[in-house]
């Protein structure tokens, strides 16, 4: 047991520190750019906006897009900023486990005497990567909240949600206390944050971990490029397909029940994340036991 704990600790420490430090930095830059672009947009749309809350900062990064309805006249809006953040998070752990397995990891596998220790240590590393990415967005969001003089709370104002193009208008109007002026979709400004989004925020790291676990498993068996492609494609598919079992559905704060009528529930998100992570860890581990571990040169040659 102590052996595997050493391995996990080393994986987390080394894997975070040396192996993917540059990629985490890239993720931080991407998150910052997305955050400030959204903040600028919100400022243009709501000149009286002033400070933003931590919840709103996180919404800027993780908002996603409204559900696509084929019969509707509204065109599908590709959530480019959200996808960019997901792609950068996916890139963080795209190939490190695969590279490790054809080098030092092979020694670790032999030293372990069975493959489960290496596998479980890597699963922990992937989850740690997801948590780190999420915490980076929290840190960047917190910085914006402090700089803009906003409130450090996990609540959002209806008008901010509205200008970001997510959420249900009737829900937002109700939350805003019926502050309408001329049209149905005109929300009042200057109201205090009032929609709590704690559940939506907590769901993000869990589902991000599930999505990155999927990428890790695919990368190990089909290569890092395939892993990265699946890691981005599955969340993207969630924007188009209204399937509750897809992890991407819960990675969009704008689609949570707090902001959208019939939206995703944080409790279900936790169940879906747990199911994805557990099934990938078990099925991947069983398949990994039967996998041939080749060196770089042999792998290339064959």
């Amino acid at each position: 047991m102590r052996g595997i704990l050493c391995l996990v600790a080393s994986d987390v420490r080394y894997g975070m520190g040396d192996a993917v430090r540059g990629r985490l930095a890239l993720f931080a830059v991407a998150s910052t750019v997305v955050l400030f672009l959204s903040y600028a947009l919100a400022n243009v749309m709501i000149p009286e906006l002033e400070g933003v809350t931590l919840g709103e900062s996180l919404l800027f990064v993780w908002r996603g897009t409204r559900p696509y309805v084929a019969q509707s006249a509204l065109p599908f809006k590709v959530p480019t900023q959200w996808l960019a953040v997901i792609a950068c998070a996916t890139y963080v752990c795209a190939d490190y486990p695969v590279r490790d397995l054809s080098g030092f990891g092979a020694q670790v596998v032999v030293a372990c005497g069975n493959r489960w220790k290496w596998w479980l240590a890597r699963c922990c590393w992937v989850v740690a990567c997801a948590l780190t990415c999420f915490l980076i967005t929290v840190a960047v969001g917190l910085a914006l909240t402090v700089v803009s003089g906003g409130e450090v709370s996990l609540s959002v104002r209806p008008e901010v949600v509205d200008v970001l193009g997510v959420g249900s208008h009737d829900l937002l109007l109700a939350a805003a206390g019926g502050l309408t002026t001329d049209g149905d979709y005109s929300l009042g400004v200057g109201t205090q944050p009032q929609i709590p989004v704690i559940g939506a925020v907590l769901a993000i790291p869990a589902l991000l971990a599930a999505s990155m676990m999927l990428e890790f498993v695919v990368a190990l068996f089909a290569g890092p490029v395939a892993g990265f492609a699946v890691g981005v494609a599955v969340p993207f598919a969630s924007t188009l397909i209204p399937a509750g079992w897809l992890p991407g559905a819960y990675l969009m704060m704008g689609r949570t029940s707090a902001l959208m009528r019939g939206g995703t529930s944080p409790a279900i998100a936790a169940v879906v994340a747990g199911a994805w992570i557990a099934s990938l860890a078990i099925a991947g581990g069983i398949a990994f036991r039967r996998m041939d571990i080749l060196g770089r040169r042999e792998g290339d040659a064959l």
Partner: peptide, 28 residues
């Protein structure tokens, strides 16, 4: 089993001793 296959492979950011100590910590 002790092995050296297809050239040595260790964690690039760790010193030699730290790499070996990590390996040793698995089987103890």
């Amino acid at each position: 089993i002790g092995m050296l296959l297809e050239g040595p492979a260790f964690l690039a950011g760790y010193s030699g001793l730290r790499n070996l100590a990590l390996l040793a910590s698995i089987r103890r």
